[in-house]
Amino acid sequence: MVKTLVFGQIREDVIEENTLGVLNKLTEISGISEIIVALFGHQIKDEWITELGKHGASRVVSVKAPELEVYLSRPYVKAMLEVIEKTEPMLVIAAGTVYGEDLIPRLAVHHGVSCAQRINDISIVGDELHFHTPVRDDQAMKVNRIEGAIKFATSRAGAFFVNENPDGGSPNVESFDVTFSEEDMLVKHIEIKKAERTVNLKDAKIIVAGGRGVGGKEQFQIIRELAEILGGEIGATRACTDVHWIEETYEIGQTGQSVSPDIYIAAGISGAPQHVSGIKAKTLIAINTDEGAAIFNFADYGIVGDLHVILPILKQKLQG
């Protein structure tokens, strides 16, 4: 039986969604015997523990300290290593967020093993854990196992479904103290610049999204016009919001908004995993000059061509 420890991530004062997805996934695997969640912070809220319990956590181990107020590698690694020592899990897993991807490989190093990354499935074969990772733009699947008594993995963002009506129980809670030294705090938190979310794209039925291939702020006009004609919303990659071609609110993907439209038009977008992980579209249409762009591997329809030539023609034809 596999005792599992999950890194409990908090985002904007609630349990981070992918972490709940990981919990849901673990409860579905027979052979996982106990789901423990490690929870760190300056304060630990009761709501978080209730939420974790609902989604399948049977035990919560928390560490409270001012040094753990925001994620920083050193203090979090230290606290997590102590939780591992206390709970002796066979599997340590985190949702593949920026923090999760930062933490897990570090923990693995301390245990002298490598780690599985961005998995979208776990299976138990005999008494082995198998980790499934899609690679090469989701065209191939690598299945790995990890040698050693303890295994480390991150999940792919958006890979696991979050149960909306969970019916789990209330977990056992224990807490302990960890002390930190100046050495642990060499990297210092300054601030988090939160992207302004003024438009909610979650319920949009049609999204016309532009990437770096759009080429500039003014050039985004064609994306806006097409979206308007189709009665949809606009979207963008982080490459575009980073240079302020378009407002941050339109960023789609792992660090932006998650969307699930009927139609997603991706123009001048290469198809990075962090972007496509935020899209669950019924139909994806890609326009890109590079025939080898990854986005075509995710697309249902596509045109290899210059978006500044293709989109105006499309607009004209749709107008009638």
Binding site: R11, E12, E16, V70, L72, T97, V98, V187, K188, H189, I190, E191, I192, K193, K194, A195, R197, E248, Q254, T255
Partner: peptide, 8 residues
């Protein structure tokens, strides 16, 4: 960072 950028 998810939802923005972190400065350290």
């Amino acid at each position: 960072l998810e939802g923005g950028r972190k400065i350290v």
